[in-house]
């Protein structure tokens, strides 16, 4: 059992949650992830590291409420426990030896790029950040990102805050202005990562992305997380989650992510029904 120490709503769909897990906190590195199981009959859901505190023995995750498991997690209160948290999983982020390192975070992807940017700065790299969201209300961690970058650019799709447009628009503009960018890490929804990669390919900038296929064990045992990189099949949970984005077959990833869609809807509906029932009972 793993205790929840803090749980805070960042905006309509995103939550920040802090777990008590001193061993994981000591070991985990930016770019790695954990697998949570919330209740006994629950799924195993992968979540990236958003922050860790080895001294206090805590790890932080920022998650978006999507389906049954994340909805359930959002109902958990401080002091309550989840069944398990296992990690660190996957390989840590890659950093260039020197030069200008750009981190791009779209939506929920802002969470995992934050610790990587901090580590890059610690390593003496010049860190340029771009963070973006659909709209102002969905943006988070701007202040934290300010602290761990040398330059930070903010975009919103609807122009409600920062620069109007996509993260790729900010990237293109910087490139056009002649800004030297040696290495990029881009994390966000699949279409965003795909778009960043098609933008940087002609620029010749090495671009890494963090892939989020469906996972179960995350120990290399089941193969559900298969992705195609440079025409070769890789297991994202052990070979990744970070890969050379110019080699990734994003269309395959999108298709594979849809495999359980109808079941996930069914699961969420059942869960919502149960919640309504429970609430009714409580009232009575």
């Amino acid at each position: 059992m793993v205790k929840i120490l803090k749980h805070q709503r960042l905006n309509e769909t995103n939550f920040r949650i802090v777990f008590d897990s001193s061993l994981v906190a000591k070991k985990i590195k930016p770019g790695q992830f954990m697998v949570l199981r919330i209740r006994e009959e629950g799924e195993r859901i992968p979540m990236s590291l958003a922050d860790m505190d080895p001294e206090k023995g805590t790890v932080t995750v920022i998650y978006q409420v999507i389906g049954q498991s994340t909805t359930l997690l959002s109902t958990k209160k401080v002091g309550e426990e989840i069944c398990d948290l296992v990690g660190p999983m996957g390989v840590a982020s890659h950093y260039p030896e020197k030069g200008n390192f750009m981190v791009i975070g779209g939506g929920i992807g802002i969470a995992p790029i934050h610790p990587t940017a901090r580590e890059a700065k610690k390593r003496g790299l010049y860190v340029i950040g771009i963070i973006g969201a659909r709209t102002k209300d969905l943006l988070f961690y701007e202040e934290q990102m300010q602290k761990v970058t040398d330059e930070l650019y903010v975009t919103t799709d609807d122009g409600s805050y920062g620069k109007k447009g996509f993260v790729t628009d900010a990237l293109k503009e910087l490139h056009q202005r002649g800004k030297k960018i040696d290495h990029i890490l881009a994390i966000g929804p699949v279409p965003m990562m795909k778009f960043v990669c098609s933008t940087t390919r002609p620029m010749g900038i090495p671009t890494w992305v963090s892939l989020n296929p469906i996972m179960i064990d995350a120990t290399g045992m089941c193969g559900v997380c298969r992705v195609s990189v440079g025409g070769k099949t890789k297991f994202a949970c052990v070979d990744g989650p970070d890969f050379d984005g110019h080699q990734v077959d994003f269309d395959l990833l999108t298709k594979r992510l849809s495999m359980y869609e109808s079941y996930e809807k069914q699961s969420l509906e059942k869960f919502k029904k149960e919640c309504t029932k429970e609430a009714a009972l409580k009232k009575a």
């Binding site: 179960i216 089941c222 069914q266």
Partner: peptide, 18 residues
């Protein structure tokens, strides 16, 4: 087999894993 046995997906939607 992991879905069915370890995650008890044979009883989906009672268990959460499909």
């Amino acid at each position: 087999l992991t879905r069915s046995n370890l995650m008890k997906a044979y009883s989906f939607p009672e268990a959460d894993t499909p």
